[in-house]
Amino acid sequence: MSLATLTKNWEPMSYGFLDASAKREIRRKMLKAVAVPGCQMPYASREVPMARGWGTGGLQVSLTLMNPSKRVKVIDQGADDSVNAASIRRFLARVSGAPTTLDTLEADLIQSRHRIPEEKLREDQVLVLQVPNPEPLRPVQPNMSIARQMHADADYGRMWLQLYEQIVRSGRVMQGASYPSLVNGRHVMTPSPIPRWDVPKLHMAKHLTILSAGREKRIHAVPPFTRVEPLVFDDVPYKVEDHGGLTCNRSGAKGFFMNEIPQDDGSSTYEISDSEFGVKTIKQAEGERVEFGETWYTDGEMPS
């Protein structure tokens, strides 16, 4: 063994921003996260040039997966053009030389904050979700050591109690986003704050989903074809947001998840949350040829 075999050639910067040891650690943890679906695996969470809580967890996973032939799409609450999404996309492209896209169908890697695209993801696509709080037990058990023990024991009674109390107090489950879901019949996870509308998209999906929390330093995953069941009582069925009948007032798309835009007169109009889907709908209405993928929801209903 000589010194030359132990050293590497000089590079102006590490490819994909993260240094090699950071990538190896995330790789090891991603494999373990896939092996135990829904179980939170601790990882080191390195510094990236972005404040914790703005998608650093997702960013680190994306940087690890990136190579020059992976086409990347970044969305923030469904939109490709928000500041957060645009700057993450630009950063990913700049440090990896990878092409970017806004179209769900063209993307190989989709990093997302709080939404899953309306078009079905394929087997070759990977969805990376940014997670602010990976611990579904936190509202009922703030001590994370005890929460870990509860996960180990599959002791989720308090989650049910929380849902029960919401139903008793308000007549319905009030949990809007990050609806606690049982993965592979064993671990309850928070599917990051995606709306209830999106949770069924994870159930037996074709794509791999990796959820990473940078500030909380945990990674969990939902492999393809894995059961993801929202916690529900037998007599109170799971309900997605009542958006099936709404129409986007900019694109005319109907039956998808909408953003509510309050109006001066107290009423509301709606805009489709998946911005690129809206753009495609507009283009089609203007006579352009656009390709739509199969959508999870048809006519505002998820076929069971």
Partner: peptide, 21 residues
Amino acid sequence: PIPSEAERRSNQAFDALLTAL
């Protein structure tokens, strides 16, 4: 940026491992 040969190998190997698992 252009990945080094080692980076390319590791990335490709990990892709294979992650997909396999």
